[in-house]
Every structure is written in C-alpha cells, then in structure tokens.
Amino acid sequence: MNKIFNKILRCSVVLNKSQNVYRMGPVAIKNNFHTTSAKCDLMEFFDTKKNWSESNIRVGRAWKLDELRIKSNSDLHKLWYVLLKERNMLFTMEQECNAKVRLFPNPERIDKVQESMENIEKVVRERNIAYYKLETGETGERPVEDVVNLIGLQEKYEKKEYAIPRFLNSRWVKPYLENGYTNSYAIKKFLRLYKEKQYNEKRKARNRDYNHVQQLLKRFPDMDMELLKAEYPNVDIEKAKRTKKARGNYMPKY
C-alpha cells in the first residue's frame, strides 16, 4: 500500500510539475511527463517477493474523502484501478495463507483498500449529482417511492424499469384491482396481530420502567428526583412514590 500511495503521490507531483512547465512551452511536457510503468503480469496477483516472508507489513492509512475531492476525474479513475489490483492481490494472498494454514499479515489492509474504494465512489457520486442538478435540475439518482407492500406495511420502493407499462402487467394489476393491497382478510389479520404485538411491547416497556422506578425509590429514597425524571420521562414519579412497592422497611417521610 505504501508503494501505491507513493506512486499516486508521485503521479500527482509529476502532474503539478507539468502544469508549471506548461507556461514555458508545450514541448517541455513531453520530456517531463512520465508515469510509473505498469507491470502487467499474472504475478500482479501476488505481493512483491520481498513481502512473502514478512510477518508484519506496515502500510499507510486509507484515502480520505477530502483528499479525493481535490483530485481530477482521471486521477480518481487511475486510483480506482490501482486499488482494485491491490484488493485482488490481498484476496489472493489471504486465500493462499488460509490454504497453507499460515497467518495472513495485517489483514486490515483489505479494509483500508475497501474504505478507499468506497470513498472514491462517494466522490464520483457527488460529482454525478452536481452535474445532473446543473444540467437537468434533478439528482439523477434512482427514484424512490413510498408504497404499501404486499403485507400491508409501508416500504421504500426503489423504482426500476419494466419492459411493459403498469396497466398492461396483468399479474400485478389483477390482485390489486380485485382486493386492493390492504383489503384481504389475511392482511387485515396480520396487521391486527402486528399492531397488538407493537402495543404489547410498548405496554411492557412502560410497566417495566414504572416497576424499576418504584424499586429505585425503595432502595434510594433520597435520590435526585430531577435526574430520575430525566432518566424515565414517561413515569409518574409522584404516583410511584406512594405505592406499596416503593415503601421500604422504614417510616415513610410523607
């Protein structure tokens, strides 16, 4: 990884240099501009030979979003392929280490590469949205709609393309026209039970809190009431104080 960062850094340095040179004359670019030669081979699937016997391979950190935002599109494109190859290399080495029952040195390298790749994708997406907004006024993202799904619950539906329009799709439209989504017996029953379950969960939580507050009042009668109120906002503390459960084995203060 270090090597890759160096490579990329070198690339960016070279690019800057060429920009400066450009003021002098376009001929100078040709001489100064160079990229590291890509070694294209199946051995690229393996780490460098030096690292084969290492038990600890020190690498840098992942690329941050802010670092990637100032790069050009072509730089990001190049970096993507560098990271892709690095990831393939790490996967290959990990596989081989597992097969030979050896310790794979520094497995967090994979996570770092993965994070860098996710960040690149995020930046590209940002640029895509910005471009679409400027050109069309829309984000260009996949449209999302709120729908009621087959079991009568609210769902986010990511729209997709179909070969035929909705009204021609008889398989979809027939049950919908006959019953509607929430009109069938089975769905009504499901929703009734589902609501009951949700209500029971709420009720149990309420009772649990109430009982717990009573026990707390019994154990610590001089505790900070405001703090207790903040901790359990739904419990009526005055009511909880006067219950039998909250009374300890001592004379009550009220």
Binding site: L42, H77, L84, N88, F91, T92, Q95, M117, E121
Partner: peptide
C-alpha cells in the same frame, strides 16, 4: 469503475 474482484 468495475467493482468485480478476482483471486488467483
């Protein structure tokens, strides 16, 4: 930006 992976 292909996100395919391959391992040898």
């Amino acid at each position: 930006l292909p996100n395919f992976w391959m391992k040898l």
